[in-house]
């Protein structure tokens, strides 16, 4: 196959004029057009009801679009094996040991046992829980459960990971640690991430790009590059550039939430 050297690399995710509405009324997402290149870490923030979680469900193929078009690595959602999803809850199967939980999705894909076990062990090592392989989920802390959930996604060796407020239920310390771990894993395993969060600090720390959504109808109002060098670690949190970006993004988010305040609710 001959590829012209000047051919541009197609974005990993291409979204064109995507609209999603549930029943009649204001669409949850209205005419969203968005490209995400391979290797980006994109955080989605915005007021509730702005469609950021819905966007993840659309990308994963769980919900069909009302109109518009999505492709992931050139294929429609629900037809790609390149994607993993991390929910807000760990959603582990309590009757399976940690190792079996990590292998669950590989088992569903009917992967041969040897390969499945190898990948499961590798993923568990990435989240540093190898010593818990034979424990049951109820024996783990909340943070450990979330790391197992992450390992389950990583075991798929995906090109794209969708994370829907994965650390939202954890305390701040655990949350910060897991954020740092997530970035450290990404240094070793290259994937693209779409990360829904309510925390501006978390979004700035993790992302190479932040999309601020507005609600009623759900749409992207700011598309901000976060130009802090990777690898990032706990020192990054004290970097004036980081702190400046956090306050800048916070101000923009607040402006969005206030402009969508009582006026639009009354309308």
């Amino acid at each position: 196959m001959i590829v012209p050297p000047t051919a541009p690399v197609a974005p990993l995710i291409q979204i064109q004029a995507l609209t999603k509405r549930f029943g009649a009324g204001v669409p949850v997402l209205d005419g969203l057009t968005l490209d995400v290149a391979a290797g980006e870490f994109v955080s989605l923030i915005g007021p509730s009801g702005c469609g950021k979680s819905t966007l993840l469900r659309l990308l994963s193929g769980l919900t069909p679009a009302s109109c518009g078009n999505i492709t992931i690595a050139g294929r429609p959602p629900g037809e790609t094996d390149d994607l993993a999803y991390v929910f807000q809850d760990p959603t582990l199967l309590p009757w399976l040991k940690v190792a079996a939980n990590v292998e669950t999705l590989l088992r569903l894909r009917r992967m041969p046992a040897a390969e499945r076990i190898r990948r499961g062990a590798a993923a568990l090592e990435l989240v540093r829980l190898t010593d818990k392989a034979r424990a049951y989920p109820r024996q783990l802390s909340g943070g450990q459960r979330m790391r197992v959930s992450l390992a389950r996604a990583l075991a798929l060796e995906p090109r794209l990971i969708l994370l829907d407020e994965p650390f939202g239920a954890l305390d701040e310390m655990t949350r910060d640690h897991l954020g740092e771990e997530l970035l450290a894993i990404r240094e070793r395993q290259q994937w693209t991430a779409l990360f829904v969060t309510h925390s501006v600090a978390e979004a700035v720390f993790l992302s190479s790009r932040i999309l601020i959504f507005a609600a009623h109808p759900g749409r992207v109002v700011h598309d901000l590059p976060i130009e802090l060098p990777y690898p990032r670690n706990q020192d990054t949190r004290r970097d004036p550039a980081y702190l400046g970006l956090v306050s800048e993004v916070s101000a923009k988010l607040r402006a969005v939430e206030e402009s969508a305040g009582p006026v639009s609710t009354a309308a």
Binding site: L83, Q88, T91, L105, L108, R109
Partner: peptide, 14 residues
């Protein structure tokens, strides 16, 4: 069964 677990299985095209 938890809704999210059903989603997980659906997404894996179980």
């Amino acid at each position: 069964v938890e809704r999210a677990q059903v989603d997980l299985f659906r997404m894996a095209r179980a």
